[in-house]
Design a protein around this nucleic acid. Structure first.
Lengths: 419, 419
DNA sequence: AGATATTTTCTCGACTGTCGAGAAAAACAA
DNA sequence: TTGTTTTTCTCGACAGTCGAGAAAATATCT
C-alpha cells in the first residue's frame, strides 16, 4: 500500500504566519467553526453537550457560543423541557434564517433545484426536465430563472442566499465556476459564474456530482459511531456516464474529496469510441451507451444514443438475466472495465471500501462477476484482497446532502473570517 | 481536472481539541517547528531573518529561539562578521550534534549507507554490494552490522542516532516498518522494526524509494524562489523496476507525498508475465527486464533475469539507435506503457509536471515517442495538454535528501512534542 | 577620541484566547 | 422551606503572540 505522510511545506508556514491572522485569532476561528459544525451535525446541543463533543473546556464553549449568538448564527431554543432533575439545559442550534443555500443538481435529463436553511434542512425543491437540444446559454438562463423562482416561493431576498451550489457530471473548474467538459455539451464550456450577478451575497460552488456523493457518504460514515474508523472511501456512480469520487482523511485529519476523471480514464486500447472522442475510455464500455452498443452489436465506432432511457437498459438486463449471450457479455465487459479501472485507483491510493451508486446499481448482479475479475488482475488486489463493496441506490439524496454540507461549511468559513 | 477541496472532519476536531494539547500549546509547537525548519533550510539565519522568513513577530522569534537554544537544538554562531554598519547579527543554526540520522538505501544490487547530522549535512557514507541470494534475515543482519559500523566510524553512541531511515523499492508498510513486497524477496516480508533493538532512541522510517525522490524533488522546487508556484509533481523512476511518487500540496498547504504501486498497476490485458506473478503490469513491459524480453523476443511468459546489468541495456539501446527494429519496438512499447500509465495517474489527480529519474533516463530518447503516444490517448491529456517532463539523472542524491529531510522533520516533531 | 548614525537584538506591557474551579441558576424532591 | 442535582456561567490564572520602543553593538563622521 502506498504510504502517505503529511509534511510541512515552507510556503505553508509563510502562508500561515505571514497571512492576515494575528496569532491566536486563528485558533479562535477554528473553535468557532468546530462548535458550529458540531451543532449542525446534531441539530441541537446543550452547553455541556458541546463541551464533551468538541473537547473544549466549558468556559471556552461559553465564550464561543456567546460570539456565535451575537453574530446571529445560533440561537437558544426556548421550551427546554428536560424532565429530569437539575437546571434544565438550554439547547443551542443554528439559526435557520441566518443563511440559505440553493442547490442545483444538473443531470443528463433533468435539473433538480433545492433550497436549504442554515440548519441544513430542506425547505423547498422542484425539478425541471432538461432540454437536450439546449445550449450553454439556454441552460444558464433556465437555471437563473429557476433560482429566482426558488427564492420567490420561499419569499427570500437575493441577499438571503449565501451560497449557490451547482453540480454536474463532467469535468469542472471549481475555482472559475466553469464546466469544462460535460456529457451533454462536450467541450462547449458553461460559465456558471454569471449566475452570481443576481445574487450579490452568494458564493458559488461548482462540483462534480460524484464529488458530492463521496463527500456525503464519507460524512455519514464518519458520524457513524459504531462504524470502524474511517480512513477513506471510493464512490462509483454508474449511469449513462461513469463517475468516481474519492474521499480520504489527509495528514491533518481533514477530509479531502476529489472527483477524478475516471470515466474517461484510458482503460484498454480498443476501438470502442467514447463520446468524448477518445477510444478505450472506461465509459465507452461501462456507461449505459457502451453496454447498449455491445449488447446490440452496434459497431464500436458509433455512439448509439445521446441518452439511453433506463427502460431500455432494463430490457437488456432482463434479456441478460434470461440467458441471452450478447447481453450478458455486454454487462460482463462493463464490469471488467470497471474492475480494472478500480484496481488502478486502488493501486494509486491505498485500499478503500467502494460504494456504488446511481441508476446502474440495479444491474449490479450482472456487473459483479466482471468487476471481480477485473479487480483480481492486479497485484494490489492480490495482496490486499478485494475491496469491500456496498450498494447505495439513493444517489440523489447523497448529492443533496453533499451540496448542503459543503456549501454551509463554506458559508461558515466566510462568516467566521470577518466576524 | 479533478477539484480538490479540503474539509474539516468531526474526528479531526475531536482529535485536536480532545487530545493532549491544552489550548495554545499547539500553536507554540507549530512555531517551534516553523522556526526550526526555516533554520535548517537556509543553514543559518539571524533573528531578523527568521522574523521575515517565518512571518512571526520579532518578539515571538526571541521567545521561540530561546526555547530552542535551551533545548539544545540550535546554537549561536560566534564569529559574526557582518561587515556593514550597525549591530552585527548573530547567526543561528541547528546544533550539529543535537541528533543524527542514519539513512539506508537498499537498491537491487547494493546497499548505500549514509550518516547525517542535525544540520542535514553528510558526515559519512559507504556502500556494500548486495547478495542477491540472501534472505530477509541475512539482509537484516547485514544492515544491522553496517549501521553499527556507521556509528563506530563517527564515534557515535547508539543513543546519538535519533532516526533510522530506510528505503527500498517495492511495497512498504510504513507504520509497521515492514517491507511487504520487494523485487528481490517477492512477498517474503522483511521486518525492519527489529533494527531498533540496537538503537534505543531512534525512530524508524521505512519508505518506498520513489517516495523519497518525490519528496526531495518537491522540496527543492518549493524552495526555488524563481520557480512558478508549486502545486504538485510526479516522479517516475525507471530502472529494473518502475517506481512512481506523487507529491502535492494539500488543502492546509502541507506537502503530502505518496508512492503508489505504479509498476504493478494493471496496464494492458496481455500475456507478459511480471515477476510479481501478474500479467500486464506496467513493469512487465517498461522495466529493464521487460524491455530486454521484448527486444530479444524471449517468450513473454518467462522472466529473463533477476537483475539486468546496465551494460546489457546499453547494448540494446545502442542497437535500437542503430536501427534494429525489435530493439526500437521494445523501447517504444515500454514508453507506451509508461505513457498510458501516466495518463491514468494524471486522470486521477490533477495535471502535474513529471520528473523522470533512475538509470532508465539514459534511454529517454528511445522511450519518449511511445510515452507521448500513450499520454495522448486519454481525454485528460487532450484537454490539458502534455505534462511538462524533465529529466533528473541523479536519483541517489534525491533519495539521500529525501531521507534526511523527512527523518529530521520527524525528529523535530518528536522533540518538540515533549519539550 | 567622541559623537552620531545605523542596524540588530531584546524587553516590556498589552491583548487574545483557553482552562479549571467554583459560584450561580434553575429545576425537582423531601 | 431546605436540600439535591444538574447545568450554565463567571473569575482569575496561565500561555502565547504582538507592537513599540529600549538597549546593544558596530561603523562613520567630525
Amino acid at each position: 500500500m502506498p504510504s502517505v505522510v503529511s509534511f510541512q511545506s515552507s510556503s505553508a508556514l509563510q502562508g500561515l504566519a505571514g497571512g492576515a491572522k494575528p496569532g491566536t485569532e486563528q485558533l479562535r476561528r477554528q473553535n468557532l467553526i468546530t462548535v458550529l459544525s458540531a451543532l449542525r451535525r446534531s441539530g441541537a446541543m446543550s452547553h455541556t453537550g458541546l463541551s464533551v463533543e468538541t473537547g473544549l473546556a466549558s468556559a471556552t464553549v461559553t465564550a464561543v457560543t456567546a460570539d456565535l449568538e451575537r453574530a446571529g448564527a445560533i440561537e437558544r431554543q426556548e421550551q427546554a423541557v428536560s424532565g429530569g432533575r437539575g437546571r434544565p439545559r438550554v439547547m443551542l442550534s443554528p439559526r435557520r434564517s441566518f443563511a440559505h443555500v440553493a442547490a442545483v443538481q444538473i443531470s443528463s435529463d433533468a435539473v433538480h433545484y433545492a433550497l436549504a436553511d442554515y440548519r441544513g434542512t430542506l425547505i423547498d425543491r422542484f425539478s425541471t426536465r432538461r432540454d437536450l437540444e439546449g445550449t450553454p446559454a439556454s441552460l444558464l438562463d433556465e437555471v437563473s430563472g429557476a433560482v429566482k423562482r426558488l427564492m420567490e416561493r420561499s419569499r427570500l431576498k437575493p441577499e438571503d442566499v449565501s451560497a449557490l451550489s451547482l453540480s454536474s457530471k463532467g469535468i469542472v473548474d471549481a475555482e472559475a465556476g466553469r464546466l469544462v467538459w460535460s456529457p451533454v455539451f462536450g467541450d462547449r464550456p458553461v460559465d456558471f459564474a454569471k449566475l452570481l450577478d443576481d445574487l450579490p451575497q452568494a458564493q458559488l460552488a461548482l462540483n462534480n456530482e460524484t464529488l458530492l456523493v463521496a463527500h456525503a457518504k464519507a460524512s455519514r460514515q464518519m458520524q457513524d459511531a459504531d462504524a470502524p474508523d474511517f480512513s477513506g472511501l471510493i464512490t462509483l456512480s454508474l449511469g449513462h456516464s461513469i463517475g468516481l469520487g474519492i474521499a480520504r482523511l489527509d495528514g491533518q485529519g481533514s477530509l479531502a474529496v476529489t472527483a477524478p476523471n475516471f470515466g474517461h480514464m484510458l482503460n484498454a486500447v480498443d476501438d470502442r469510441l467514447c463520446r468524448c472522442g477518445s477510444r478505450g475510455c472506461i465509459e465507452a464500455t461501462a456507461g449505459f451507451y457502451g453496454i447498449l452498443r455491445l449488447a446490440f452489436q452496434v459497431p464500436p465506432n458509433t455512439i448509439p444514443a445521446r441518452f439511453v432511457p433506463l427502460a431500455e437498459m432494463e430490457k437488456i438486463a432482463l434479456s441478460a438475466r434470461q440467458g441471452t449471450r450478447m447481453a450478458q457479455y455486454a454487462f460482463r465487459q462493463a464490469g471488467l472495465a470497471l474492475g480494472q479501472g478500480l484496481s488502478r485507483v486502488l493501486s494509486l491510493y491505498e485500499n478503500m471500501p467502494v460504494a456504488i451508486t446511481g441508476p446502474g446499481t440495479r444491474f449490479y448482479d450482472l456487473l459483479a462477476g466482471g468487476m471481480e475479475e477485473g479487480l483480481r488482475q492486479s497485484l494490489h488486489v492480490r495482496l490486499n484482497g478485494l475491496p469491500h463493496i456496498d450498494i447505495e441506490p439513493d444517489e440523489a439524496g447523497l448529492v443533496f446532502d453533499g451540496h448542503v454540507d459543503r456549501a454551509l461549511a463554506a458559508v461558515d468559513q466566510r462568516v467566521m473570517a470577518v466576524r
